[in-house]
Amino acid sequence: MAGAIEKKLNDLGITLPTPAAPIANYVGAVRSGNLLTISGQLCFGEDAKLVATGQLGAGVSMEDGQKAARACAINLLAQVKAAIGDLDKVVRVVRLGGFINSAPGYADGPKVMNGASDLMVEVFGDKGRHARSTVGVSALPANAAVEVDGMFEVA
């Protein structure tokens, strides 16, 4: 039987994908005590294709960037579920780190990252409010528009 968080995802029309396998010498998740750190997730959508490619401020709109960040957050949740089995075990979303593929001078990365942050609050309520950093970068793997990593406190 699905827990409360999975029911909330279902109500939002979100189906968690099979987590992406690492493409280099790292693992998707590491648990140390009650902290679960999830490796950076690219913005793969339901069709296993990138939601947005290229740079924000040079062909990728803020709205598409926000959709990409939301897709990254969904992929984070898929990794969390794979690591602990039940999303109801998430005590708190501690931190998100966002990497925004940005054209020189693009300053709206934090607004793009809201796509990921807003989903965490939609899904977890106050437990989804988190610390965050957002960094503009000149390139990401596969020319993805956004990558997001995260840290979760789990029971």
Rank of each mutant, 00 (worst) to 15 (best):
A2R: 02
G3M: 08
G3V: 12
A4K: 04
A4Y: 00
A4L: 13
A4F: 05
E6P: 09
E6T: 11
K8S: 12
N10K: 10
D11H: 02
D11V: 10
I14M: 07
I14A: 07
T15C: 12
L16P: 10
P17W: 08
P17H: 08
T18K: 14
P22N: 08
N25S: 14
N25Y: 03
Y26D: 12
V27N: 02
V30R: 00
G33M: 06
L35C: 03
L35S: 06
I38W: 00
I38Q: 00
S39P: 04
G40N: 05
C43Q: 01
F44H: 06
F44Y: 15
E46D: 13
E46W: 01
E46A: 15
K49T: 15
L50K: 02
L50C: 11
L50A: 09
V51Y: 02
V51T: 14
V51P: 07
T53Y: 01
T53W: 02
G54D: 07
G54I: 12
Q55M: 14
A58R: 02
V60Y: 00
S61E: 01
S61T: 12
E63R: 04
D64S: 13
G65Q: 03
K67M: 13
K67W: 06
A68G: 10
C72S: 08
C72E: 03
N75E: 11
N75I: 15
A78M: 10
A78D: 05
V80M: 04
V80I: 12
V80Y: 01
K81T: 14
A82T: 08
G85D: 05
D86R: 03
D86G: 13
L87I: 13
L87W: 03
V90C: 07
V91L: 07
R92F: 09
R92Y: 07
V93I: 14
R95N: 13
R95G: 12
G97W: 01
G97H: 05
S102L: 10
P104F: 09
P104N: 07
P104S: 11
D108Q: 13
K111L: 15
K111C: 08
K111F: 11
M113S: 07
N114R: 05
G115W: 00
A116M: 04
A116K: 00
A116W: 00
L119T: 03
M120N: 02
M120I: 06
E122R: 03
E122W: 01
V123T: 09
V123E: 04
G128N: 10
R129I: 15
R129N: 14
R129F: 14
A131Y: 05
A131Q: 10
S133A: 09
T134H: 02
T134V: 15
V135N: 04
V135S: 04
G136L: 06
G136T: 06
V137Y: 00
V137H: 00
L140R: 00
L140E: 01
P141G: 05
A142K: 02
A144Q: 01
D149M: 12
M151W: 01
M151T: 14
F152S: 05
F152I: 12
F152C: 10
E153L: 14
A155K: 07
